[in-house]
Design a protein around this nucleic acid. Structure first.
Lengths: 136, 136
DNA sequence: TTATTTGCAAACCTTTTGCCAGCAG
DNA sequence: CTGCTGGCAAAAGGTTTGCAAATAA
């Protein structure tokens, strides 16, 4: 465990989840000489060792987090907001998929996509407005 | 609807889902002059018109499919295999998330990640082997 | 003619690779 | 010494943009 690797891991512990770029910035705040290449290589290494894992939030870069940070990500594909919810909500689905497909679901690795509450309301408001315009 | 746009849409109808690159290759089999730029622009346009949609399968490029091709993708993060299952399996989860977070789940937009059956068996076999080696 | 669409080339961003130097065993 | 590690620069992959020619209204 070299100083650079410790820095990357510390950054992840502090940020909870972050893209490689974000980790790099965070590390460079204290140690500006650390290269983005090193961050990528360290993340890869730590992942092989099962110390960290990565999650695809759908659009763009994957985010890394320390193992044990286990929850489901809810990504709004309208505003980009990322919520989290307990992994518990997936337990039934997990059983269903295992039974039907032999598929062992890893609920933390991929995010769920949809529309968050504020955006749902915003959309409803738009539709109401459009309907009224149509009537007028 | 220009010829190029029709070609892109036809390619998607035939391929069911495909990355922009795959669409481009498919289109170029019949019309080699079509540019990848046009494919991207057409996909973007068709998506705005809600004719097609895209799904992030986790690693790498997004895949596009025609609207109505509604099922859930199960991606194995060990072998990369992509299975599909009925959207029905998500209905309970969908209700739970709506009630708890006001989150309107779009089950088709993001894939679910896990380990497929063959890979689960392969892993189990590896573990058995390792255990036997340890005993010997 | 005016607006839209296309093709090409180049830019862009994120991630990966090759190579050399530095450090540790 | 030998091998792993880190930094730099360059390459690679996927996507976007600027511009001018072609096309359509």
């Amino acid at each position: 465990m070299t100083p650079q690797r410790q820095l990357v891991l510390d950054a992840l512990l502090e940020l909870e989840h972050a893209t490689p770029e974000q980790v790099c910035h965070h590390v460079q705040r204290t140690t500006p000489t650390v290269n983005i290449t090193t961050v990528y290589r360290t993340l890869e290494l730590l992942e092989e060792l099962s110390v960290i894992r990565h999650t695809h939030l759908g659009h763009g870069a994957p985010t890394y987090s320390v193992d044990g940070h286990e929850h489901v990500h809810l990504v709004c594909h309208r505003c980009g907001r990322v919520d989290e919810t307990d992994i518990e909500v997936m337990s039934e689905l997990c059983g269903t998929l295992r039974a039907a497909h032999g598929f062992a679901l890893d609920a933390t690795h991929l995010a769920l996509s949809g529309t968050c509450e504020p955006c749902t309301r915003a959309k409803a408001a738009e539709n109401t407005q459009r309907a009224q315009e149509g009537q007028a």
